[in-house]
Design a protein around this nucleic acid. Structure first.
Lengths: 220, 220
DNA sequence: TATTTATATTAGACAAAGCTAACTTTTTAT
DNA sequence: ATAAAAAGTTAGCTTTGTCTAATATAAATA
């Protein structure tokens, strides 16, 4: 079954939202917000995807991807991340530039191209944002998602990946000298709003709680 | 102005047909045939493209691309041929496999990606079918299109490029041992139907006139 | 529990790009 | 020069994916 670009975008949205929500479910309005569409449009498309057995839900109920829908989504994410890696490593793109073009490239249909690209890149495990790339079978490890925001004063960590691929966020991360593998020490946390002062490479920066929640780390 | 994939496909079709016809013009039915659509659909789209000043024509008259339309088409052809080159040289695609995927890749919008790809490939002059790749400014040389069919008994030539990118044609070319730069000698020509017997690498094959008209050569 | 708010659905309209069938204009051939 | 054929156009319908406005259900709160 061949899906349209639009159908693929819905499945990917559902996959991402399911991961963020508890219990692998998402809501119509949430999908609409995520894709920048009206709830009516989303409802309309959901009917079609349900008919194709890619999404499961009861009227007025929460949405889940079926196994088949999940598999399509994971393959898309694999393609997206492989293309991001290609753009970053071979086309001189910066990490804030790769997402937009990969959004287009992920819809190219050619299994040969993807397996060759994977080989060409040396079967990379992570994309330029540190996100894990699912393998050819669609398997991927869900690593512990510890955010910078969960650390305490005095803790030291290493930046493993970022939650957001948006240009403003990534440029901000770079601006304060952070990148994948950066070592970070938490110097201060404000009880008032959770903002924290961090040290990296000898410099100190104060960042909001929201920011810290978008940075994944491993403690060291 | 951003064009849809569909609009781009029409412009590319018009460009190719204009080159094949005398006087850089094409007809509605011809475009319909080329794209596998009904003349009515084509007429419909032509109105839109005329409104955007990409195509020029009078009612019931022949079609030409405007300078602006030509420029869009050439940029698409450049992208198509660069992607074909990439697939062939780095993704282990054969020359009969590249066209289909390049048809998709040519619609990716990113000028940075194309200029980086060009650099990555070493600014190639020709694609895997021997076709000339327009440069960044959209300039390209129209080389003399001498076909194998125009040669006489005893002439010797080298295969420079092929007119057709279809899988059956390219597989046939390969099957009889021909590739870019192959040396060919014309051993015999039938006055009856123009079919010709050619020698290459010590083997002889008889091919139709139609076939010979799809093979571009330079005399040696 | 009753009411308000949030979420989800339906109905009806629209634009893009396709189609068929009918019609008009141009070209070709008798 | 006229009739037949080919090419181009128009009208009206279809599908896909979007929208707004109105309505129905579920969840939250008073």
């Amino acid at each position: 079954m061949t899906l349209t670009k639009t159908e693929e975008d819905y499945l990917k949205a559902l996959f991402h939202l399911s991961l963020e929500n508890e219990s692998d479910k998402a809501g119509t309005n949430q999908v609409a917000e995520y894709l920048g569409l009206s709830p009516a449009s989303v409802n309309n498309m959901l009917k079609k995807l349900k008919g194709k057995d890619l999404v499961a839900y009861e009227k007025y109920g929460k949405l889940t991807l079926t196994e088949s829908g999940k598999s399509v989504a994971v393959r898309l994410i694999r393609k997206h991340r492989l293309w991001e890696t290609f753009l970053f490593k071979h086309m001189n793109f910066t990490w804030d530039e790769v997402h937009e073009v990969a959004e287009q490239l992920e819809h190219i249909q050619s299994s040969k191209l993807i397996s060759e690209l994977d080989k060409f890149l040396g079967h990379p495990k992570r994309d330029p944002h540190g996100a894990i790339i699912p393998n050819e079978q669609g398997e991927y490890s869900l690593e512990p998602h510890i955010t910078l925001a969960s650390l305490q004063v005095g803790d030291t960590c290493r930046l493993t990946s970022v939650r957001d691929s948006s240009v403003p966020f990534l440029q901000y991360v770079s601006r304060i000298g952070l990148a994948l593998s950066s070592r970070i020490r938490v110097a201060e946390v404000q009880a008032f709003d959770g903002s924290m002062t961090i040290e990296t490479e000898g410099n100190a920066y104060t960042v909001s709680k929201k920011f810290a929640e978008h940075v994944f780390v491993e403690k060291i």
